[in-house]
């Protein structure tokens, strides 16, 4: 992929980034690679591209005959610079840096690989972010089973149930109910409901139900399940 159009600002920016941690285009000595890139440039890069400018000035300090004697073989401009997965880039990877390959434990000189890995990473991050942003939209719900106990065996349990079911609020849906015998003919009302966690809490339910104090002695939460 190379630097793209080296005469354009964009191409020079790429050259600048590439040269940030390098003194030469390839390896640690000036080579024909530098000559090719240098000759392709139309003039000095602007001052804000300090790395490219440093390299450019460095190259300018050499004379033409000197440059001819540098090692290396001239290749097309596109073969130099950051490797962006272009087919030409695959072959010329191990040319010049014979001495640092074995020591470069963490750094891979293969920019294509890095770029691909980075892209993959970005995609994953994006996917993760999307997933994460969706999550709060899912409403957390719970199923609660309440035990409602009357005062005595004379309490009208149908009236109790009617009162409980009369409690209506946003995020609260009443479910099935049944009467469970306790002792001495006293029955308790076991009623289930589904609530949205954010909107309805057990405290609210207990308070609302015990508000019917003519019928209700106490309310217990028998079961609480997240759905």
């Amino acid at each position: 992929m190379g630097f793209g159009n080296i005469k354009s600002k964009d191409g020079q920016k790429q050259l600048n980034d590439f040269l940030a941690d390098r003194s030469y285009i390839e390896g640690y000595v000036p080579s024909q690679a530098d000559v090719v890139v240098f000759e392709a440039m139309s003039g000095a890069p602007s001052a804000d591209l300090c790395h490219a400018l440093r390299w450019f000035n460095h190259m300018s300090s050499y004379k033409k005959p000197e440059m001819q004697s540098w090692p290396g073989v001239k290749q097309p401009l596109g073969n130099y610079g950051p490797k962006g997965g272009a087919p030409a880039a695959a072959g010329d990877d191990d040319d010049d840096d014979d001495d640092d390959d074995d020591i470069d434990l963490f750094g891979s000189d293969d920019e294509a690989e890095t770029a691909a890995a980075e892209k993959l990473k970005e995609e994953r991050l994006a996917a993760y972010a999307a997933k994460k942003s969706k999550k709060p939209a899912l409403i957390a719900k719970s199923m609660i089973i309440l035990d409602v106990k009357p005062w005595d065996d004379e309490t009208d349990m149908t009236e109790v149930e009617k009162s409980v079911r009369s409690i209506a609020t946003d995020g609260l849906v009443w479910g099935t109910s049944k009467l469970v015998p306790l002792a001495y003919g006293i029955k308790k009302l076991q009623i289930s409901c589904v609530v949205e966690d954010d909107k309805v809490g057990t405290d609210f339910l207990e308070e609302s139900i015990t508000a019917f104090e003519d019928y209700v002695q106490s309310v217990d939460v028998a079961a609480f399940n997240k759905i």
Partner: peptide, 26 residues
């Protein structure tokens, strides 16, 4: 500094007895 150091340590004959310091290119 890193770029300069890496450049100097790769200059033929400079490094000698000193171990090479590793720099990452990415």
């Amino acid at each position: 500094v890193s770029r300069w150091f890496d450049q100097v340590q790769h200059y033929p004959g400079v490094q000698q007895h000193l171990p090479k310091v590793v720099f990452v290119r990415n």
